[in-house]
Amino acid sequence: MKVHAMRIPFALVAVLVAACSVPVAAQTATGTLDKVKAGGSIGVGYRDASLPFSYLGSNGQPTGFGWEICGLIVDEVRRATGLATLAVKTQAVTSQNRIPLLQNGTIDIECGSTTNNAERAKQVAFATNYFYTGTRFLVKAGSPVKSLADLKGRKVVSTTGTTNMLVMRKISREQNLDIDLFGAKDHAESALVVQSDRADAFAMDDILLYGIRANAANPAELAVVGEALQVEPYSIMLRRDDPVFKKLVDDTLAALIRTGEFERLYKKWFQSPIPPKGINLNAPMSKELLANLKALSDKPAE
């Protein structure tokens, strides 16, 4: 669905802000639920190639683990606002624009594969962590690259705007690996760079690499290698300073976990054949995720 501008009285807000001499960034006129109720719609951001969290299915529409969970959150928003009908305005987002689009109100919630870390938490809020992953490497099958040490002096690509770029830059510097690190616009382009021999490896969250490999024309031509460099949580992204909406999202996740629906969805997307090629990622829950299903923490990565 094409996104249209939401009819929100920004001009009125600007006048009130000016009259009170309060900076716009510090002003929270209404929360997300008020905004949704007033406009009759909610903006939902998705990724088009973050399999199995959020990606485009064969019908060209968003699908995936995170996408389904966000659909259940939207149902709770509909109930909380008392709206008979609630328009869902979908918006594709990238690693570079997902935070600005959330901050400026284009989207109200982002359902993808966003790492919850302390730096991003200065700009946005995060719901309860719902997945944990670590940076590994996608290479061509038969590549001499098997570990981080093998990347010394080699070309490595990662997606611009991701934490993986920062991790690789830091590790290369600390371990004197002299890695030639450069960015690509999205995960699909990063993978293509490796497939076309323009880079020796694609550094990214391991679960996304498994998804990219599964979705490749010939999965056997690619391999995921190396030990995870760090473990980081994924979380649904929200606007800051909106405790009412965050509570609704966190309560929805808690209910899904308590009823077993979260586990059912996990098995559907990580331990069963998934579209478009019916490949099973065979990715059981990590010990970190199992622990957080009890803790229900939104603790960011360091």
Rank of each mutant, 00 (worst) to 15 (best):
P9C: 00
G226D: 04
L102N: 05
K2N: 13
G183I: 01
D180G: 01
I109W: 06
V24I: 15
S58Q: 14
A301T: 01
L256W: 02
K146E: 11
A11N: 12
A217F: 06
V124Q: 08
L181W: 04
K267M: 08
Q91T: 13
A121P: 06
D206G: 12
E76W: 05
L289Y: 01
D150L: 04
A255F: 03
G45I: 02
A201Q: 00
K155A: 13
K185D: 14
S50A: 03
P233Q: 04
K37S: 15
V88Y: 01
A14Y: 10
T63I: 15
V74Y: 01
R169I: 07
F270A: 03
Q91N: 11
D200G: 10
I257Y: 08
E119S: 08
L290Q: 14
L229M: 14
A49F: 07
T90P: 04
T81E: 12
V22E: 15
L151I: 07
M165R: 13
Q91Y: 12
A118K: 14
I69N: 09
L290W: 04
L101G: 02
S158Y: 07
D178K: 14
D186V: 05
I69H: 10
P52D: 02
D242G: 11
I73W: 02
G64W: 05
V224N: 08
T106H: 01
T115Y: 11
S235H: 01
V193L: 12
E119I: 06
R239L: 11
D34A: 15
N164R: 02
G134V: 06
V15W: 08
V44L: 14
